[in-house]
Amino acid sequence: MLELIVISTLNGVLFGMLLFLLSSGLTVIFSMMGVLNFAHASFYMLGAFFGYQLTRWIGFWPALILAPLLVGAVGMAVERYGLRQTHKHGHVAELLLTFGLAFAIEQVVQMIWGKLPMDYRVPELLDFPAFTIFSTNYPAYKMFMLLVSVVIFIALLVVLKRTRVGLIVQAALTHPSMVAHLGHNVGRVFMLVFGVGTALAAVAGVIAGPALVTQSDMAALLGPILFVVIVVGGLGSLPGAFFASLLIGLLQTFAVSMNGSLASVFGPLDPSTGASLLTDVWNVTIAQIAPILPYVLLVLVLIVRPMGLMGTRET
């Protein structure tokens, strides 16, 4: 029992940190620009593929720096030539633009790299088990992912709270038009924010690529759960996103490790009743519903506390 709790906690934290890596960029974009960027996961995928390609050419470590810069540049171009034109037509238009973008990016990736998974490996430097708990290995690479997430969290916090750019971003969270009136080039700030947000997604892609599967459908796999994270955490709240990522990671991991169902608590139903909705509900295990728990959490949080767990502004 203790073994399962320790290991589930570890796995939950690891998964939560991956979620945070991805959602940190999204929460910055969403909270500042109000853009529901449905292509965010596509930028994550671009990061993974750029990372893969650059790793083959120049090695993993340079790729870890270069790929996010490239993707950030792509993101800035998207903001400059796409979103900025669409901004005046409202959020639905922006949202659909990113929808269309997600379609196009997936197809372009398929055209360049094909539809099969890439052979994207963990760098040799980190390809060893870091430690072993209860005879389960934890690869050094996962620890590296954890470290990167924490570093990014701290770095973002420092930038947002302690620098001038952060000040503007913070101000724009609550009083977007006031910031513009004060004479700041909101357009450039937005472009920068979008670039940084997509670059963060790309960092997640480069890092998660070898750990997960690098394939042209990897974006679709992570899509909506990112919105769950940032909305549950509270828009514009980086600590909120961090906390929500951890919460969702742990929630899913622990739910998976539990086999309980109504049948196991109250005993099986009389078999003569036959299959019905009741038997379905009765026999479903907590592990089976684990992946939908984040959505339950989302709906509940929004009903009870619409600004999210740690948000200050109503969404």
């Binding site: 589930s8 998964f15 991956l18 796999l221 899913q252 490790s257």
Partner: peptide, 8 residues
């Protein structure tokens, strides 16, 4: 996305 809990 993460099968680690199942593996555990």
């Amino acid at each position: 996305t993460d099968f680690a809990p199942y593996i555990a």
